[in-house]
């Protein structure tokens, strides 16, 4: 029957369209596939229409919201999210927020041209112990790297992607409407337009993100997403989330050799010191790492910092052959 044929035909085209949407949303596709896509589009006007509709559906915030809905979500674990949104109707607010965060990520999903290798720059930058360095990327963004930091940068005509493999870096991102800028920290992915923000990989589990300008969206898997405006931040540690307020100034203190601790575990401070200290700072007892300190420390002066920490918690430190050892 004509009608059935029509439906079946349309469905076959829709299926092809979805396959294209899926393929083109991969980070890189080869040029043969890209040429195939152009041929497919040109072959039949219905192909464009189907591709447009299925794209609209795929990218829609409505679909994202439904996929996010706890009722349809297979495994939900969002205990600590209220760290970021205070009173009000929480569920409602969270949902809207997530929807918008997803919308900004959609820009990534449509990335899709394939180009010869020379249009893609892949670079790795690393700093050694005690070394601080500022690198500028081909798109005009700058990254200030703390000691013992490593980043892998991939810039293509349609995307800007940085993997923060270790350490801490302050990103000042050139605003571009056409290309999203994403930083992947292994546990959390941060997506931005034109902003300045700082990310620290504290340990295997913990990430600290602080925003100095613009707007940043953070995605931490299992549907956990946040949108951070300038002046705010987030500390993600496994499943725990702590929101940070009072992110002040136009860049983090460490870029000028200072570290602002605010109920910060000693372990975190020690790690910071160890990016630059002439000898490694070690803890005689790991439990010391859990003590909290507040204050402004000059990270270039490990001895001075240790003096201060020792005074705060009534501890001692001594210099051994290979380290500064903090003990009770």
């Amino acid at each position: 029957m004509g009608h059935d044929m029509h439906i079946r035909n349309r469905q076959a085209i829709d299926m092809q369209a979805i396959q294209w949407i899926e393929r083109l949303s991969r980070p890189v596709i080869d040029s043969a596939a890209a040429a195939d896509f152009d041929r497919w589009i040109l072959k039949d006007p219905q192909h464009v229409e189907s591709y447009a509709r299925m794209s609209a559906l795929w990218q829609s915030d409505g679909l994202a919201a439904a996929l996010h809905d706890p009722a349809t979500r297979p495994a939900a674990s969002n205990d600590d999210e209220d760290a970021c949104d205070a009173p009000r109707s929480r569920h409602h607010l969270m949902r809207r927020r997530t929807v918008q965060a997803v919308a900004s990520l959609c820009v990534l999903l449509v990335a899709c041209i394939a180009v010869p290798r020379l249009l893609v720059t892949d670079r790795i930058f690393a700093t050694g112990h005690g070394e601080m360095r500022t690198v500028s990327l081909p798109d005009g963004s700058t990254v200030r790297m703390d000691g013992e930091t490593r980043i892998a940068v991939r810039i293509t005509p349609w995307s800007r992607h940085v993997a923060l493999e270790r350490g801490e870096a302050f990103f000042d991102v050139a605003h571009e409407r056409m290309r999203n800028f994403t930083v992947d920290t292994g546990r959390a992915a941060v997506s931005v337009l034109g902003t300045a923000f700082d990310i620290e990989r504290v340990d295997a589990d913990t990430r600290v993100i602080q925003v100095y300008r613009g707007l940043v969206s953070v995605e931490a898997g299992t549907g956990r997403e946040w949108r951070l405006p300038a002046g705010s931040g987030l500390e993600l540690s496994g499943e725990r989330v702590r929101s940070l307020k009072d992110v002040e100034g136009d860049r983090p203190d460490w870029t000028s050799g200072w570290y602002e601790a605010n109920d910060t575990p000693v372990a975190q401070l020690v790690q910071r010191l160890n990016r630059t200290a002439p000898k490694a700072v070690a803890l005689a007892d790991p439990a010391l790492g859990e003590l909290l300190v507040t204050g402004r420390f000059q990270t270039g002066d490990a001895r001075g910092v240790l003096d201060a920490v020792a005074a705060i918690h009534d501890l001692h430190w001594r210099e051994t052959n290979g380290s500064y050892l903090l003990e009770r």
Partner: peptide, 26 residues
């Protein structure tokens, strides 16, 4: 608090009704 610079592209597909349909289908 939730102002976004990425507004909804698709009023139809982001409507409450569409979300309910997606929900049920999913």
């Amino acid at each position: 608090d939730w102002r976004s610079d990425e507004p909804s592209l698709d009023r139809v597909l982001d409507s409450r009704r569409a979300i309910d349909i997606f929900d049920r289908c999913l």
